[in-house]
């Protein structure tokens, strides 16, 4: 009986959904209207940057005319290339490689280090495990800002190096937590049977856990990349040699140097963000899933 009512309900719902009543059409129209307007608002600053990067500086700051694509050229980009092309100011490609290198080490080092400790916490029994678990949970809420200044004070002899930019960021309580919650949710049976077959924990980790955990590895990769690529406060304290400066810091440096040429600054911004935007558009689904997975609920 009850399944019959269910069937009936579903049928009704289907009809409701399919019906193309005028009210429904208007509703859909307004739905799209709303989304379009909000999209326009969200995209406006980005569009402004893209258009501004191609316009002469004098025409960038001109009220809403800033959106009008007029007198477009790549001159601003050429100026950026020309400005950052010697040892005193740094090299554009160097800012890039600095950012890439530092982010790369943070992300891949982090994947290894954090997934290992998370696995040990989730699946192995060892002395001190409970204490470390509590420690990691406590550290999750501690933001980097809280330790930035003492960290600077301890590491100030290593300013203007690469390792000082990535080493403190490899281990991350947050990444450990993400791995941990994922590993805890994996079915135990496969591991147990592997264990009976004589596989040690290390082998289980490499041969079973890692292949089963691609989603969480992807999430952690993307989340820690976003953090590493945007890093500002610590490089601000630690790096001022143009040869070691990462991109997000350099754009601030460029911005503060008078005269403030908006065209080239926007061109620099586009150069900075375009590759990441491209990666984002290509792997959009992954980005969004990773962010969704970052929510620690409860």
């Amino acid at each position: 009986m009850s399944s019959a009512t269910e069937q009936a309900k579903k049928e009704v719902m289907r009809r409701i959904r399919r019906s193309r009543s005028p009210k429904k059409v208007i509703k859909t129209f307004f739905h799209y209207m709303f989304l379009t307007v909000v999209t326009a608002i969200f995209f406006a600053p980005i569009a402004y940057m893209l258009i501004g990067s191609l316009k002469p500086t004098a025409e960038v700051l001109d009220g809403i005319n800033g959106f009008v694509p007029k007198n477009l050229s790549f001159n601003n980009y050429l100026q950026v290339f020309a400005t950052f092309n010697d040892e005193s100011m740094g090299f554009l490609w160097r800012f890039y490689t600095n950012s890439i290198l530092v982010s790369f080490v943070i992300v891949f080092g982090g994947l290894i280090v954090n997934s290992m400790i998370a696995y040990a916490l989730a699946r192995l029994r060892w002395r001190g495990r409970d204490a470390v678990q509590v420690l990691v949970i406590l550290l999750v809420i501690l933001p980097f800002e809280a330790i930035a200044i003492p960290l600077f004070f301890l590491l100030r002899d290593f300013r203007n190096t690469y390792f000082v930019q990535f080493l403190p960021f490899i281990a991350s309580a947050f990444s450990i937590y993400l791995f941990y919650t994922f590993f805890i949710g994996l079915p135990l049976e496969i591991q147990e049977s592997a264990r009976i077959d004589g596989a040690g924990p290390w082998r289980i980790y490499r041969a079973i856990i890692i292949p089963m955990s691609k989603p969480v590895f992807a999430s952690v990769t993307i989340l820690s990349f976003l953090g590493a690529w945007s890093s500002f406060l610590f490089p601000l304290m630690m790096v001022d040699n143009p040869l070691y400066v990462p991109l997000p810091l350099e754009i601030q440096v460029y911005f503060t140097q008078p005269p403030t040429d908006w065209g080239p600054i926007f061109a620099f911004g586009v150069i900075l963000v375009l590759p990441v935007m491209a990666v984002f558009l290509l792997f959009q689904r992954w980005f969004i899933q990773s962010v969704a997975a970052s929510a620690i609920k409860g």
Partner: peptide
């Protein structure tokens, strides 16, 4: 404390430095 960290870092930096050199 700073010296200890410095020592540790010097070792790690040697590795990191070679990575950097290789990469770039």
């Amino acid at each position: 404390l700073r010296k200890v960290i410095r020592l540790k870092l010097k070792k790690i930096s040697a590795v990191a430095g070679s990575i950097a050199a290789l990469t770039l």
